[in-house]
Simulated scan of single mutants.
Amino acid sequence: MQQEPQPEAVNSGQLVYHKIGGLIRRYRKDKGLKLLDLSGITGIKSAMLSKIENGRMLPTIPTLFTIIQKLGIKPETFFAELSAENHFPGFLLLRKGQYASYVKEEGAIGFEYQSILEHTFESGAFQLSLLTLRPGAQRPAVTTAAYEIVYVLRGHLQYQLEDRLFELTEGDTLFFDGNIPHMPVHTENTTVQLLVMYIFAEISR
């Protein structure tokens, strides 16, 4: 009889959160499964699975173990791909060449993400990414189970939060609840760069 995987099998070090969704997506496709198929065998709604795969929700440990078990992945194999060095010497020097490129929404056009820094803490986690928007960049509005901070490094654009539209230019910062449907609106023939921080934690309102 197959033994149920236990949460204690999770590596005690830091996990590279921007990889979780992509790994699940890759294993799911390797099995020839669609999101609805995975939803059917896990009992997890396809909308939630989509947000997890797109890095817009961090799954709970029980949810994550359910997914990898139903996909037939050994926990040690899965978490070995997510483990990061947990030693902190008191400072971090992050070279541009060390940033890790990753994909969020597969259907997005002109969106290029690079993970700069990720860290867990007692009540949650954060991820800092560099987002480059190429001319013609577009995607539908999305929601994220996190708070977001957007800082404009280069260029100008509009940022839509539900039915509100904000004009943003270099040096501007926008902080918002990611559960509000949102998307950058970039219609000019220029390249825009943003720093985006995702805070997966409860914040006092």
Rank of each mutant, 00 (worst) to 15 (best):
Y198T: 11
G155H: 05
F175I: 15
L195C: 10
G171L: 06
M197E: 06
G171H: 04
F175A: 13
E170F: 04
V192G: 08
T187C: 15
P181M: 03
M197L: 13
T187I: 12
G155K: 01
T191D: 08
L153C: 13
E170M: 10
T191C: 06
E162Y: 13
Y159M: 09
L174T: 03
I180S: 08
T187M: 11
R164W: 06
F175W: 13
N179S: 15
Y159N: 06
E170R: 06
L165I: 09
M197D: 01
T173M: 11
L174F: 09
P184D: 03
D163P: 07
H182I: 08
L153K: 12
E167G: 12
V185S: 04
P184S: 13
F166A: 01
E188P: 03
E167S: 12
F176G: 05
E170K: 09
T173G: 09
V196W: 05
H186F: 02
F175V: 15
G171P: 06
D177W: 03
T173E: 07
L195E: 02
V185C: 13
E188Y: 05
P181R: 03
L168W: 07
N189H: 15
H182M: 07
G171Y: 03
L157T: 04
F176T: 01
E162P: 08
D177E: 12
I180T: 08
D163I: 09
F175N: 15
H156M: 08
H182A: 07
L194T: 08
Q193D: 02
T191A: 04
Y159G: 03
D177R: 14
R154G: 12
N189Y: 15
E188T: 11
Q160I: 11
E170L: 10
E162M: 14
N179T: 14
V152S: 02
V185N: 03
H182C: 10
L168T: 07
T187Q: 14
T190A: 07
N189V: 12
H186R: 06
R154H: 12
Y159I: 02
G155N: 04
H156C: 06
D172W: 04
E162V: 13
L195N: 08
Q158W: 01
H182P: 01
I180K: 09
G155Y: 07
N179I: 14
V185W: 08
T169V: 13
R164E: 15
L168C: 05
